[in-house]
Design a protein around this nucleic acid. Sequence first.
DNA 1: CCTAAAGCTTGACGCAGCGTCAAGGTCAAG
DNA 2: CTTGACCTTGACGCTGCGTCAAGCTTTAGG
Lengths: 258, 258
Amino acid sequence: MDWSVQQIAKLAGTTSRTLRHYDDVGLLKPSRTGGNGYRYYDQASLVQLQRILLLRGLGLGLPAIAEVLGRESDAERALSRHLDWLRQEQDRLARQIASVQHTITAMKAGGKIMAEEMFDGFDHARYKDEVEERWGKDAYATGNAWWNGMSAEQKAAWKQRARQLGSDWIAAAQTGTAPDSTEAQDLARRQVEWLTGIPGTPAAASGTGGGTSSDVKGYVTGLGEMYVADPRFAANYGGEAGAAIVRDALRIYAGKHL
Amino acid sequence: MDWSVQQIAKLAGTTSRTLRHYDDVGLLKPSRTGGNGYRYYDQASLVQLQRILLLRGLGLGLPAIAEVLGRESDAERALSRHLDWLRQEQDRLARQIASVQHTITAMKAGGKIMAEEMFDGFDHARYKDEVEERWGKDAYATGNAWWNGMSAEQKAAWKQRARQLGSDWIAAAQTGTAPDSTEAQDLARRQVEWLTGIPGTPAAASGTGGGTSSDVKGYVTGLGEMYVADPRFAANYGGEAGAAIVRDALRIYAGKHL
DNA sequence: CCTAAAGCTTGACGCAGCGTCAAGGTCAAG
DNA sequence: CTTGACCTTGACGCTGCGTCAAGCTTTAGG
């Protein structure tokens, strides 16, 4: 009238190890234990085991199952709670999938950029005139000295950050991210933090008490305009419309936080 | 030019423990280690860390991340594989959600049954005539003796199984499960296994060499007809159409496996 | 009756990714 | 010199078993 571990395991479609585990945690005790320590199970055990396995198949944890088996009528509430949790997980997964797709897009874009050698780190010479005109001659000199004073590794790291930012912006633009969205604003923050690392700029000076808030604000929004104006940027950002997102995101960020 | 653990942890939005873990597993070594054992990180470390955390946020495991960071251009394939896995998970979750909802429906139905005391275990007397007519007088006598010989606990366990089966059938019928679907066929299998426990029936005899396969087949399909014919069953199964699912599922199962 | 093959027992490590004490050096500030 | 903040290594905990490992018991076969 009763079965050994292996037998009941096969009947229920599980393993003896699982049975021993359930015994250990007190989820399902054998109906009888032989003098030799052998575990024996009866019909009632089988029914319980089947219920346990059913609930496990639904994704419930062992403590939750114990709770359900303990209080007779609690099962429905437990399952409803579990259902909520499952739905949350599904949402989380959906968001993650979107993020991964987004990232893949970004990496493809990033690859293109690297191939074309755009955004190559910090192309000082290219913007020499503009920098001097906007922030003075020694601003350019300072920046140039800073850049030349860095080791090859430091330069590489700096370029890496710039590329990352660039490709993220492009991905955001191509997926139609709104300028005031969390993602775009996060990118704007990163862009400003990146700028903060460049000495001689208002952004860098803001931390040392050397500049005013409005200086930084003007600098950042000015940079945004620069991005839009430059056809090489706009081309990668999906045309002027795409580049406008970068400009708007920076402007909004500057307005809120600077 | 470099930061301590806490500092870089804050910069990247993680904890020092995580940094130490990454050091342990070789995912991100400090750029420099002080004579006192202190860990120090530089800009390149920060960039790497940010990439790691990004990939972690996308759900990749540490080994996968190490792989991505190791081979430069492998990131895209890794992310694509990860994307596949994420989609599989989403499917699995979707199926689990369906199952849970199904089960909740079943439990509600089961509660109704218990309240109405239908399916009350194994109502021998109720089917006395039919059993005698179909399988002979001593078949009924045998079954009756067997039933009366069980302890109260055994009877309870038996009833429990019957109720579970009944409510599962009802849930299947109410959710429009197809008779040849995996779920319905699984139910049919359970139903047959349940029957196998009743001595004196062809189903029970099949295991002991006392009956032929066609006996069992006829018994099972006959039982299906009985279910459909009985208005009390049909009422709970959602009318004749619902009950027909039970009959068809049993018939298909018998045809395939008996 | 003896032996080999199953089957059973308890015990314990492994996995994934850190969180969370614990015990004890190190460093900057007062 | 002391306090407190920050650092180190070491190790357990969590989830649900899978997977040896060493050793006792039962069973089937010669």
